[in-house]
Computed example of a mutant assay.
Amino acid sequence: MKAIETTATINENGELTLDKSLEVTKPQRVRVIVLLSEEDEIEPDETPTEIVRAC
């Protein structure tokens, strides 16, 4: 089994939209694990704006 980590958005209908293509070459069933952050939790892959501006 191969694991691919990416980001996505869940819309108001509960549908998942990936931020970029997975580049999978054939149709297949997959298992999905969704990690939801708490409201006060900073996403680990999102650098705060202050740090980006300082760079």
Rank of each mutant, 00 (worst) to 15 (best):
V52F: 00
E23I: 04
V30H: 02
E41H: 03
V30C: 04
E41M: 07
E39Y: 13
P27T: 15
E50Y: 00
R53A: 09
S21C: 10
E12K: 10
T17K: 10
C55S: 11
E15M: 12
K2R: 07
P44C: 06
E5P: 06
D40L: 01
A3R: 13
L36W: 02
T6H: 04
P27G: 05
I42T: 15
T7A: 11
E46L: 05
I4S: 06
D40I: 05
R29C: 09
V30E: 03
I4M: 11
D19E: 08
T47C: 09
E12Y: 12
K2P: 13
E39Q: 09
I10P: 01
P44E: 05
E41P: 10
L36C: 14
S37D: 15
A54S: 12
A54V: 08
S37Q: 09
E12L: 09
T6D: 15
R31G: 15
P27A: 09
D45P: 03
T49Q: 07
L16C: 10
T17V: 14
T47Q: 01
V24Y: 00
E43A: 14
E50T: 11
G14Y: 05
P44H: 03
P44G: 02
T47N: 05
T25H: 01
L22M: 01
E41C: 05
V24R: 01
T7L: 06
D19K: 05
E38W: 04
L16H: 06
K20W: 08
G14S: 12
A54T: 08
I33F: 09
A8I: 13
I10A: 00
S21L: 06
K2C: 07
D19F: 00
K20Q: 15
T47E: 03
E5V: 15
I10K: 03
P27W: 00
A8S: 14
E50P: 01
T6I: 14
R31Q: 07
I4Y: 04
T25G: 02
E12M: 12
P44Y: 00
R29I: 15
D40T: 10
I4T: 14
T25M: 00
R29N: 12
I33K: 08
L16W: 06
L36D: 11
L22S: 07
V32D: 05
N13R: 08
E23K: 01
E46Q: 05
A3T: 14
E15D: 13
K26L: 02
D40F: 05
S21N: 11
C55Y: 01
A8M: 10
E12S: 14
E41S: 09
P48N: 00
P44R: 03
N13V: 15
V24D: 06
E12N: 13
L36Y: 02
M1V: 15
Q28R: 03
S37P: 14
L36I: 13
L18C: 07
K2H: 04
M1A: 13
K26I: 10
P48D: 03
L18D: 14
V24Q: 00
G14V: 11
K2N: 11
I4D: 10
V24C: 02
T9I: 11
A8F: 13
D45K: 08
V24M: 09
K2E: 08
V32M: 02
P27C: 07
E39F: 05
K2A: 13
V32C: 04
N13C: 11
I33T: 12
E50C: 02
R53H: 06
K2Y: 05
S21Q: 07
E43H: 12
D45R: 01
T6Q: 10
C55M: 04
T7I: 07
A3I: 12
